[in-house]
Simulated assay, not measured.
Amino acid sequence: MSAGTGGANYGLRDEIREFWSERAETFDQFPGHEIFTEQERRAWHALFERHLGEAGGRSALDLASGTGVVSHLLDDLGFDVTGLDWSEAMLERAASKAASRGRRITFRLGDAERILETDGSIDVVVTRHLVWTLVDPKIAFSEWLRVLKPGGTLLVIDGDFVSQGPLERLIARLERLVQRRGGAPGPALPGDLAERHRSILSRVHFKDGARADEVARMLTEAGFADVVIDRRLGPIHRAQARAMPLVKGLARQIQHRYAIRAAKPGG
């Protein structure tokens, strides 16, 4: 669906929902979305254990859960997981995947910027690759703080998928050269979806890139405490690179990607 298709009330947030709904069918085919190796699974588990501690049956809310990849990782560790997404197509695939694996994860429809959970009801909130898509991060961060229990933990995994350093630009040129010479590019978005992705990205809050320092600053302003930036995601990225064409794998390992842990005061 293109901008304006839904009439006068159809806006950017609707475009974002429709875009991800159309991505649902092939979402898990892309390295960096689904988990392809046990090496990557262990690396994700290590990241969560480092920042969230032992699960102990605590409640975890996976925001913009998509097909449930992060929800499954949290379930592996013993969290009581709810996945929230506003794409019905994503939720259908998530529910089907959980059922096929015998998981007891709750998936439900909802907006990560306007959560319906009651105040102080969640132990842990986790997001992966959500922040860069937010239309109004100030509202979203306030909502995430509100639903956490005092002393609860937020873990954001995200990155700057817009700006590129000199080495990234060199790798991008190399990738284009490989493709022109018939090299295998790996999974890619069809042209129309790629164009819509660029259009959406140009209009979200972090259109110039969601840099870690800026996200951390905004979380502090929203009321979070003990905000810590963790850039030690190398084990995850190296594992993902093994499932990617060489050039894409190199790019994955040098991009500005990070985890941010923050706490709700009290508890």
Rank of each mutant, 00 (worst) to 15 (best):
Ala95Phe: 00
Lys97Trp: 10
Gly102Tyr: 04
Arg103Met: 00
Arg103Phe: 07
Arg103Val: 01
Arg103Cys: 14
Arg104Gly: 09
Ile105Gln: 06
Arg108Ile: 10
Gly110Cys: 06
Ala112Val: 00
Ala112Ser: 15
Ala112Gln: 05
Arg114Pro: 04
Leu116Glu: 15
Thr118Val: 13
Thr118Leu: 11
Asp119Asn: 12
Ile122Ser: 04
Ile122Lys: 05
Asp123Met: 02
Val124Gln: 00
Val124Met: 06
Val124Tyr: 01
Val125Ile: 11
Val126Phe: 02
Val126Glu: 00
Thr127Glu: 14
Arg128Cys: 12
His129Lys: 11
Leu130Tyr: 00
Leu130Phe: 08
Val131Thr: 12
Leu134Ile: 11
Val135Thr: 15
Lys138Gly: 15
Ile139Ser: 12
Ala140Lys: 09
Phe141Ile: 03
Phe141Lys: 03
Leu145Val: 07
Val147Tyr: 02
Leu148Ala: 09
Leu148Ser: 10
Pro150Val: 01
Pro150Arg: 03
Pro150Ala: 03
Gly151Trp: 01
Gly152Arg: 02
Thr153Ser: 15
Leu154Ile: 13
Leu154Pro: 03
Leu154Tyr: 07
Leu155Thr: 07
Val156Ile: 15
Asp158Met: 00
Asp158Pro: 09
Gly159Arg: 05
Phe161Cys: 01
Ser163Trp: 08
Pro166His: 01
Leu167Thr: 13
Glu168His: 10
Leu170Asn: 04
Leu170Glu: 08
Ile171Met: 03
Ala172Phe: 08
Ala172Thr: 12
Ala172Pro: 07
